[in-house]
Each structure stands twice: as structure tokens, then as C-alpha cells.
């Protein structure tokens, strides 16, 4: 009944929303292809409304965007673009993008990869799957890296690895706290071993950063898996996850195939990781800015007893 009602009106409304989250990306990622389909924003109409995958509620896209892509009824956390994420976290106009000039190439001449890159660039208006830069979070300067699942399933190739490594080194040189918000299918297959080695590269940079006594907060969002989880995403001084996020090394389908049995309820969710000691906190998107700012504040304070 409601469906019909909304459909009949869809011509009048234009909602300014990134369309890439409704699109099934052809650009598959390592190990966990199934995660792309966990949330699928409804394509019917012309993006007027979205049906919540969790509670089935029909939500106006405008309202969903205003609510930081969180279902107002059941708190389901939809995926959010890197740009929207930056806007929701940083002080207005404080963000300065860095290393934006670094982009992917097709080093292995992998069939179809160049076209896929172009398509993803057009679709997302991003150069690659991560935005890096600096800005202010509730007044505190931070170095910030935000991945975008809409670009090639957030996969990490040479460009993503290079941008994040540059960001980590930049944060170390400026003695800035570092926040990386991850969402990824893993290493980008089309760049072969060059992608895999980005795991070692980013982790080595984090080792140096840690040695400088600086704070790194890793925020894991839906979904984070494969080589990204098995490198910088798990290496925060503080690891934070968004409610319900799928966080894995191997994706559920791969595991199911390997062990040929059903997976336990809630397996590999943020809450599961909290229970198993892999993340420090599960934080609602609406609380994230506040929590980050509190953590930053505690690390900034120099008390009289210390």
C-alpha cells in the first residue's frame, strides 16, 4: 500500500544522495563478495525512499541522510559515503584534503581493470577508495583517512596503501592524532601482490607512528574484511566499531564453504568482536563524534599527578 503511494510521487522529488550505494559494484573484492549484498538500498522509484533491510521500514532518503544514514526506527546503520562521513565528523570547512593526487594505475595490465577504475571514478566522483586529509574534530586537529565502500568495494590497492601511508607519516611528522575509518572488501585483486604488500606498508608506517607515542584510533564500519582488517584496521590504540558492522578476516561465505556448517547467530558482527575482545567499543554513529572528541581530550590532558 505504502509502496504504491510513494511510487506515484517519485517524480517530484530530488534527493541529493550518492547513488553508488545502491549499485551492485562489479568490482569484486578479495574473499568476501557476499558482503556487498548485505545492504542494498532500494532502487525502485528514483531514489525517493529506502527500505530498511533490518526492520523493513520504508524511509525517505532525505530523512535517512539527515539521520546520518541510520534507520530512525531500528538504528540499522546503512553504509555512508566518505564525504558524508567527513562532514558528519569534522568541524565545518575545516577539512583539507591531502594526497588527493595519488591514483590507481593498472600495473599488471589486468583485464578490465582500467575500465573498472574509470567507472568507479565516475560513479563516486572519487579518485580512489580512500579520502585522506587533516581537519578539526570539535576543535582538535586530526589526521583523518576515510574509506569509501562505493569505490571498488573499498578495496586496497597501491593508491589506497600509498595515501594511507602518506597520511600516517604526515600525522607523525606533525604530531597529530590519527583516525582511520575503514570499510573494505580487502586487498584489491587486480593489482595482485602489489595490493597485498600494502598491508605490510601501512602496518610498518603505523609501527613508526606508535613509536612516536602518538594516538591512533581505528573505526571499523560495515563491512571491513580481508587484508584491511588484517592490517591497519585492527591496529588502533583504540578500536571502535559501528553497531552491526560485519568485521572479518575471512568472509562468512568462505568460512561456510570451508567448514560446511551453519555459522552462529551474530557471527562476525561488531558486537561479536566486542565480546571476543577485538574492539574496545561499539559506538552508535550519532555518538561517534562525541566519543572521538572525548578520547582526544583525554589524550591531550596533562594532569597534575602525571
Amino acid at each position: 500500500m505504502f509502496r504504491e503511494l510513494f511510487r506515484s510521487k517519485n517524480k517530484y522529488v530530488t534527493v541529493n544522495r550518492d547513488p553508488q550505494y545502491s549499485d551492485r559494484s562489479e568490482h569484486e573484492t578479495e574473499k568476501v563478495p557476499e558482503i556487498r549484498e548485505r545492504v542494498k538500498v532500494e532502487k525502485e522509484g528514483d531514489h525517493l525512499w529506502t527500505k530498511c533491510k533490518s526492520c523493513q521500514e520504508i524511509i525517505y532518503n532525505k530523512k535517512l541522510a539527515e539521520n546520518q544514514m541510520v534507520c530512525p526506527v531500528c538504528d540499522y546503520h546503512f553504509r555512508i559515503s566518505a564525504r558524508d562521513r567527513i562532514n558528519s565528523l569534522l568541524d565545518e570547512d575545516s577539512f583539507i584534503e591531502l594526497f588527493s593526487e595519488v591514483t590507481s594505475t593498472n600495473p599488471l595490465n589486468f583485464k578490465g581493470y582500467a575500465e573498472q577504475l574509470e567507472k568507479n571514478q565516475k560513479k563516486t566522483n572519487l579518485r580512489d577508495a580512500v579520502i585522506t586529509g587533516r581537519g578539526k574534530l570539535c576543535g582538535t586537529p586530526v589526521a583523518l583517512g576515510v574509506m569509501d565502500f562505493g569505490f571498488a568495494g573499498g578495496s586496497m590497492g597501491s593508491a589506497v596503501g600509498e595515501k594511507l601511508t602518506s597520511l600516517i607519516e604526515y600525522a607523525a611528522s606533525k604530531r597529530l592524532p590519527l583516525v582511520i575509518i575503514s570499510t573494505a572488501g580487502g586487498a584489491r585483486m587486480q593489482e595482485g601482490m602489489l595490493s597485498l604488500m600494502q598491508m605490510a606498508k601501512t602496518s610498518a608506517a603505523l609501527a613508526r607512528y606508535a613509536k612516536a607515542g602518538l594516538l591512533y584510533i581505528s573505526v571499523l564500519t560495515d563491512p571491513t574484511s580481508g587484508g584491511v582488517t588484517a592490517s591497519y584496521a585492527m591496529l588502533g590504540d583504540i578500536n571502535i566499531a559501528e553497531p552491526g558492522a560485519l568485521i572479518a578476516f575471512a568472509g562468512p561465505r568462505v568460512i561456510k564453504q570451508t567448514i560446511s556448517q551453519e555459522l552462529p547467530e551474530g557471527f562476525q558482527t561488531a558486537e561479536f568482536l566486542l565480546e571476543h575482545g577485538m574492539v574496545d567499543r561499539v559506538v552508535h554513529r550519532h555518538e561517534l563524534q562525541d566519543e572521538l572528541s572525548r578520547i582526544l581530550r583525554i589524550h591531550r590532558m596533562v594532569g597534575e599527578v602525571s
Binding site: T103, G157, E162
Partner: peptide
């Protein structure tokens, strides 16, 4: 490890 990877640096 820092030097692994092949990418384009548009600026330079």
C-alpha cells in the same frame, strides 16, 4: 616496504 606499489601521482 614503503616503496612497494605502483600508482600515479597526478600532481608531479
Amino acid at each position: 616496504f614503503r616503496n612497494t606499489g605502483q600508482y600515479l601521482d597526478i600532481q608531479i
